[in-house]
Computed example of a mutant assay.
Amino acid sequence: MRQDIRLGEGVRVPGIDACLDEAMALPGARGAAVVDWTSGLALGTAGEPPGGDQEAAAAETAELARAAAELPTFTPDAWDGAAPGPGVGGGAGAGAGSGGGNGAAGGKGLPVEDVIVSTRDGYHVLCFVDTTFDSSVFLHLWLDRDTGNLALARIRVRQLAERLVLG
């Protein structure tokens, strides 16, 4: 049974547990987490963590997500120079946490959709969750390289992230 969370004035999102259950149903899924990239804390986890430690995995993937979302190398034209979001040091190109109106093409959303890291034995898919407020949440799916399907996982994780839109 899918459980939804109510966040005030009629805003409903699928529960984190339901989202993680769906992620773990993907072929080759080894572990999944919903992580806040500002704090590095896991909001929910399922399966086994990369390296064997949920907290360390969340903190380390948050560093990668933060770099991709905030550094001008990856998002040179995406931000209009607005005030930096939570945990951002400022400067040109910063502000990935500043929410809704400053985003990439189309004028909204985060400038980075996802980050994919290939390792010798697996794939890590980090997919940002776009919201209308100061969001710093991403989904992390860890796939086995031999049994996972990276293309399918990327599509499905994006669909899960879209359903987790909070605003």
Rank of each mutant, 00 (worst) to 15 (best):
M1Q: 09
A67I: 12
P49G: 11
A68N: 11
L143T: 09
R120C: 10
P72K: 10
H140M: 03
P14H: 02
A56H: 02
A46N: 12
W37D: 15
L139C: 03
G15N: 10
G85V: 00
P49K: 09
G89H: 14
P86F: 12
R30E: 06
D121W: 14
N102A: 15
L64F: 04
V13D: 04
A18S: 12
G109S: 03
T147G: 10
A94D: 15
L152C: 07
V129F: 01
A153R: 06
E70M: 13
D146F: 13
P50N: 08
F128Q: 02
G97I: 03
R163Q: 13
P111I: 06
T45Y: 10
S136C: 13
G28I: 01
V34D: 08
T132F: 14
V13E: 08
A29K: 12
E22A: 13
R156H: 05
L26R: 06
S136I: 00
A29G: 01
R156E: 15
G51Q: 08
W142F: 13
A23N: 04
S39I: 01
Q54E: 14
D121C: 13
Q3R: 12
H140W: 09
V117D: 01
Q54H: 12
L143W: 03
A59W: 05
E48S: 14
D121H: 13
G28N: 04
M1N: 06
H140Q: 02
P49M: 13
S136N: 14
C19A: 14
A153S: 05
T131C: 14
W79H: 12
G40D: 00
S39R: 13
N149T: 03
G52M: 14
G90V: 01
L71K: 15
P27L: 00
D80M: 05
V88P: 15
L166T: 14
G10L: 06
A58M: 01
Y123G: 03
P86N: 09
G81E: 03
D53L: 02
G101N: 09
H140F: 07
F128V: 10
G44D: 09
G81N: 07
L143A: 06
E63S: 02
P76T: 04
G122R: 00
Q3A: 11
R145S: 13
G81K: 07
W37H: 12
T75W: 11
A78K: 09
S135G: 15
L20C: 06
A18K: 01
A78G: 14
R145W: 10
I5D: 10
F138S: 00
K108M: 05
G90S: 13
S118L: 07
G10H: 10
V137M: 11
V35L: 02
G101P: 04
V129S: 00
G31R: 05
G90C: 05
G44M: 09
D21H: 03
A161D: 00
T119S: 13
A25S: 08
G87C: 08
C127W: 15
G167R: 10
A104N: 07
D53A: 07
D17H: 07
D80T: 07
L41R: 03
V125I: 14
V34F: 11
R66K: 14
R120Y: 15
P49F: 11
D121I: 10
L43H: 15
L141H: 01
T119H: 11
G101M: 12
D80R: 10
F74A: 15
S39C: 11
F138Y: 11
R66D: 12
A59N: 03
V35R: 00
